[in-house]
Simulated scan of single mutants.
Amino acid sequence: MPPEYVIDGLFSVKSDIFSFGVMVLEIVSGKKNRGFDHPDHDLNLLGHAWKFWNEGRALELADVLIEDVPETEVLRCIQVGLLCVQKRPEDRPLMSAVLFMLDSENPSLPKPKQPGFYMERATSEMDDSSSWNNPFTPTELSVTKLQGR
């Protein structure tokens, strides 16, 4: 979910762009944003991609299963994904621009800004006893059966 929806309840066409960017980064990396885990840090997938991008190591984000894809295409997908998940909706491209960037051989792409929800989880959240790994317990889940009169 885009930051503006989670924080302020605002939804726009740029909200879908954010979700699309998350999906692109998930496809390229072969990892899910939710529950993402890395041994070197406690960043989510967006933070991980942003960290690698800034360090010039973006190709390390790519899943080994896409090794036959040219590096330039992988880098373009990562950059477009990061452009789509920028924090401010007005900084995100329109979907028509996203399609153009993905379809063009050598588009000049803008430099992405910090993603929304670029965060590091507290270590207590990663504790096995927390609700992070087990979001539902029998006492928290209920089923209501409706019956007519």
Rank of each mutant, 00 (worst) to 15 (best):
C77H: 00
L94C: 04
N134R: 12
K111A: 10
R57H: 13
K14H: 10
F20D: 07
S131Y: 02
E105A: 07
D68H: 09
L59A: 06
E67H: 13
P115H: 07
V80F: 04
F11Y: 15
E4W: 05
N44M: 04
P107G: 09
A58E: 15
F18A: 07
A97C: 09
G30A: 05
P135C: 01
K31V: 00
V28N: 04
L46Q: 11
P39S: 03
R34E: 05
E125P: 00
I17S: 02
P135Y: 03
L43R: 13
K113G: 10
E60R: 12
C77P: 03
F36N: 03
N54I: 03
D8P: 01
M119Y: 12
D103C: 07
E67A: 15
F117M: 10
Q114R: 15
L75V: 03
P3S: 02
L102Q: 12
A49M: 08
S124F: 14
K113N: 13
L61E: 09
S130C: 02
A62T: 10
R121N: 06
L94M: 12
R76K: 15
I27T: 12
P39G: 01
E125H: 00
E90A: 14
F20R: 06
G21R: 09
T72M: 11
D42P: 01
G81M: 05
R88T: 11
P115A: 05
K113L: 14
L45G: 08
V74G: 00
V6M: 08
P3R: 05
P3Y: 08
N44D: 13
E71K: 15
I7C: 06
P112F: 07
N134C: 09
Y118I: 01
F100D: 15
P93W: 01
A122Y: 00
A122N: 13
L45R: 04
C77A: 14
N134Y: 02
E55N: 11
M119T: 11
D8W: 12
S12V: 11
Y5R: 06
S129A: 15
E105I: 10
I7N: 14
E55M: 10
S96W: 00
V24D: 01
